[in-house]
């Protein structure tokens, strides 16, 4: 069984279910990527896994423990961490303070974790005294990821981390994400830039109408002519 298993998720915001039985899994050291057309329920699936919307069906387990009924903060304590797509930093606070706030629920000494984050994102170490709101888009995303890493999560979830950044910055960000995965963290990511994301994905999920349409390794999905034609634009 995988490290994260989110099985047969059903649910949505209103009366109508956006998720109609979709399953997502991820393992430590792996990058799992969810792609799919607009409105397929990609972000909804991720929010459901993090507990930001209640499910009508399905179950979520992390490392064998059932988290289905937990609130987001409890899930954080159990090893999940989430980077929202927008408004994911504290703009008037310094980079270092952003990281400190990431570690808010930790009562132990987190300076070692902070050093690890600075090692992963050297540019943040350079700008540690600068307000996060004054950084460039790509650097802000690194702050956001760094903040999420401060709880020493076993599962890191990223909601469209490359939305609105330039291609060069996107490559740089993906490199950093690979580095994070190498530290033994499971990564689950929703991406709009499907091709590039699948290139780094160990596991890829193509969602459609709230259901799994295709599931395979990133490489295999990129090679699949059906997936290429329908979702990747040829």
């Amino acid at each position: 069984m995988s490290f994260l298993v989110a099985r047969d998720m059903r649910g949505g915001y209103g009366a109508e279910d956006i998720l109609q039985g979709c399953t997502v899994e991820a393992d430590r050291g792996e990058i799992a990527v969810i792609v799919g057309p607009n409105g397929a329920g990609k972000s909804t699936a991720m929010k459901a896994i993090f507990g930001m919307l209640s499910l009508r069906g399905g179950a979520i387990t992390l490392d064998g423990a059932d988290l289905t009924r937990m609130k987001p903060t409890e899930r954080v304590k159990n090893g999940m961490s989430f980077v929202p797509q927008v408004k994911n930093v504290f703009p008037s606070m310094s980079v270092e303070e952003n990281l400190e706030m990431g570690a808010f629920i930790r009562r132990d000494d987190y300076s070692a974790t902070m050093d690890e984050v600075y090692a992963l994102f050297p540019v943040l170490a350079e700008k540690r005294r600068q307000p996060a709101g004054e950084l460039s888009g790509g650097q802000r995303q690194q702050v956001a990821v760094g903040r999420a890493l401060m709880t020493k999560p076993s599962l890191l979830m990223l909601d469209e981390p490359t939305a609105g950044v330039s291609p060069i910055v996107m490559d740089e960000l993906f490199d950093r994400i690979i580095d994070v995965a190498k530290t033994g963290i499971a990564i689950l990511m929703v991406e709009q830039n499907a091709k590039q994301a699948l290139e780094i994905a160990t596991r890829g999920y193509v969602l459609q109408h709230g259901k799994n349409a295709h599931t395979d390794t990133g490489e295999a999905l990129l090679a699949d002519p059906v997936v290429r034609r329908t979702f990747l634009g040829g």
Binding site: P72, T73, V89, S92, M93, M101, I105
Partner: peptide, 16 residues
């Protein structure tokens, strides 16, 4: 934590 909450309410709640 108060400044964080003032800055970004949702992210502060998310951070516990």
């Amino acid at each position: 934590s108060m400044r964080a909450y003032a800055d970004n309410e949702d992210l502060a709640t998310l951070s516990g």
